[in-house]
Simulated scan of single mutants.
Amino acid sequence: MILTPPYKNLVAQAHNGSGKTTCFVLGMLSRVDPNRRIPQAICICPTRELAQQNKSVLMRMSKFTGITCASAISPALKDYMPISKMAPVTDQVVIGTSGTLIKWITNKKLATRDIKILVFDEADHMLAEENFMSDSTRIMRDIQSSAGDCQLLLFSATFNEKVKDFITKVIKEGNQIFVKKEDLTLDKVKQYKVRVPDEIAKIEVIRDKIFEFGQKVGQVIIFVRTKISTKNLHNALTKEDYVCSSIQGSLDHAEREKVIQEFKDGYTKVLISTDLLARGFDQSQVNLVINYDMPIKYNSRDEPDYEVYLHRIGRAGRFGQKGNVVNKIWQEF
């Protein structure tokens, strides 16, 4: 469907941890000519962490091909360079966030006339959030106007009806694969609900009950709703002599990369995160996810965000492995 002509557009929905990244990376590699030192494939991601992870997968899969890949992400402060001094991109594949890609294209550092394939990873998020949507559609139109017949691949574990309607209007020809809502939950991920009377009790339950279990199953990700909650929970657990790390969007890029790498290398077993890592983050040793705060829709006080919930729990039970999810509830969800 992706690898052989005719190269049709594709909108694909699949369970978390089912191999979507491998699928679209193969699609990009199959369309690239390694002998041409020009951009031929672009992948747009919602976060720099996911962009870096996707690049890592691509570099492993293309190890003996001679294909190179550029990361279109905002640099850490120590690596900052004015875009005017940046050399034009000659890598065949570019993976990055929409904001940085727009800057590169606008400043004529990223040529789009030879792009053969454009991938949207976590496409529902890229086309649902207003800022992401405007950047994404702008990149799409720029490539379609300069490159002409460019194949579009949109991948995600969830697609709401609003995004489906938009996709139908924008992508008139192509294949579509959707999963019924009732079939989206991962069969091998057990989900538990723990009722607690207040915020203090949440920490006590984690400390006295869940961590003991978590140490037996592997690594743990604890999802919270806000940056402040990330800091407060981290401080509360470290005071109890638990070794854990935390990540949220306001951290310096270099610090975020350090936290991610230490977790991937197994130096830390517990990672506290906002929804920064809810989508696409892949660490096979994570077998327990704790929803310290249940996800709520943006600009809403109490409307549950079921799609974010599915993405969060998808961090456990990757590629058919068994996983566990504990939901801490002190208000009715």
Rank of each mutant, 00 (worst) to 15 (best):
S84H: 04
G19F: 11
Q13N: 09
I83T: 04
N54T: 14
A41L: 09
V25D: 03
I83N: 00
F64P: 05
C45E: 12
A51R: 02
P82L: 04
S74M: 05
S18N: 12
V25M: 05
R60L: 12
Q53Y: 12
R48W: 06
M28E: 04
M59W: 02
C69P: 01
A51L: 10
K85I: 03
Q40K: 04
M61D: 05
P39K: 00
A76L: 04
H15L: 12
Q40D: 09
P34N: 08
K78A: 10
K55M: 15
G27C: 08
R37N: 12
L29C: 10
A72E: 01
G27W: 00
I67A: 03
K20M: 13
M61L: 15
S56A: 15
M28W: 02
L29H: 05
Q53H: 12
R36H: 10
F24W: 06
Q13F: 08
D79Y: 00
I38W: 02
I83E: 01
Y80D: 03
R60P: 03
I83R: 02
K63P: 05
D79C: 01
Q53M: 14
A72S: 11
I44V: 15
K63R: 14
Q52K: 15
M86V: 13
T68V: 10
L26P: 02
K85H: 05
N16P: 13
T68M: 10
A76R: 04
P34D: 08
D79R: 00
I83Y: 00
I38L: 07
Q40G: 09
K78Y: 03
R36V: 14
P82C: 07
I67K: 01
Q53G: 13
L26M: 14
T22E: 12
A87Y: 06
G27D: 07
R31N: 09
M59T: 15
S74Y: 04
K55E: 15
T68P: 04
M86G: 03
I38S: 08
S71M: 14
P75F: 02
A87N: 11
I42F: 09
I73G: 00
F64Y: 15
R36D: 11
R31E: 11
K63T: 13
A76T: 09
C45W: 03
S56P: 06
P82V: 05
S74W: 01
V32W: 00
S30L: 07
P46L: 12
S18K: 08
K55T: 14
P39G: 06
M28V: 10
